[in-house]
């Protein structure tokens, strides 16, 4: 019993409270659906539960540290050698690519086609918090938020391919929807011949799918899919996945294609956030 100003009030029965709270939940869901109101609540609770996240991500941090600490000198030498090797190969590739790019530019200008300025991005490292979220979806937390300039729909990649895009931004945290999330779709093209399509997430870790390609489409197994840049979110030409299997069912109008993502979604801790270099460059063609 609560007494207010000398009057005693009976607290409402638990059924009444349940009904009130259910209505409140529905109201919050509605507000969250309609506009930005939900974000205030999310931000407040997120600051409250920050310790939960930091403690929960501790074990993987500790094992990482332990691995780092137990490496000896020969390991490091091997790593350095490996990296040097890779660096040589990469710079070779880069040089070759540079010439190709220059040639491409020249040819384009000769053709007189509208020169579409390639959107240039500055990548910046960010860390993924290794905590599990909603089991029905595929999302991860990022340790940077609006304080660091992260914005919504920002592309997230790693060294091997596209990882996903930022779907929610808090002050010092952001949620990344991975490309394997069942609600995620990304416009791609086949690198070999430029065939454009859309790759959907399936929810399982190592498979993406292409549901809407007709049986006559020119796509082969082991084809590499790169972003087509159609959605305006991802940069053009970044690898997304490799076609794993194509099943042709004569009764179906569409091919059943599974794709393996290129990005090492479950391994890496660091990802790259892509920041467009200049916004103004985009508007002046």
């Amino acid at each position: 019993m609560i007494s207010i100003l000398g009057r005693t009030l009976r607290p409402p029965s638990s059924l009444a409270r349940l009904i009130i709270l259910v209505l409140l939940s529905v109201l919050i869901m509605y507000l969250d659906h309609k506009g930005d109101y939900g974000n205030y609540i999310r931000n407040t609770i997120n600051t409250l539960i920050k310790p939960v996240h930091s403690i929960a991500s501790l074990p993987s941090a500790v094992t990482g540290w332990f691995k780092e600490a137990t490496k000896n000198e020969t390991d490091y030498q091997a790593i350095i050698k490996d990296l040097e090797n890779k660096n040589n190969k990469l710079s070779y590739k880069l040089n070759r690519r540079q010439t190709l790019e220059d040639e491409n530019k020249r040819l384009r200008s000769q053709l007189g086609a509208v020169q579409r300025i390639r959107k240039d991005y500055t990548p910046r490292l960010a860390e993924l918090l290794k905590v599990s979220i909603d089991p029905y979806t595929r999302k991860l937390y990022l340790n940077q938020g609006s304080n660091h300039g992260v914005f919504i729909r920002q592309p997230v990649v790693d060294a091997y391919g596209v990882v996903g895009q930022v779907s929610k931004v808090y002050n010092s945290k952001a949620v990344v929807t991975l490309i394997i999330d069942p609600s995620h779709a990304i416009p791609v093209m086949v690198r070999r011949n430029g065939l454009r399509t859309i790759v959907y997430g399936t929810g399982s870790l190592n498979t993406l799918s292409i549901p809407y390609l007709g049986t006559g489409s020119r796509i082969k197994e082991k084809d590499i899919l790169v972003t087509s840049g159609m959605g305006g979110i991802f940069p053009t030409g970044y690898p997304v996945g490799r076609v794993k299997k194509i099943i042709k069912d004569p009764n179906e109008p569409f091919l059943n294609i599974t794709v393996a993502p290129m990005a090492r979604i479950n391994y890496g801790k660091e990802v790259l956030l892509l920041y467009p270099k200049t916004r103004s460059k985009k508007s002046t063609p």
């Binding site: 529905v26 919050i28 969250d32 659906h33 939900g38 609540i41 539960i49 939960v52 979220i133 909603d134």
Partner: peptide, 9 residues
């Protein structure tokens, strides 16, 4: 919030 539900509540 912890699980990042699509809709709060």
């Amino acid at each position: 919030v912890l699980f990042d539900s699509p809709l709060l509540g």
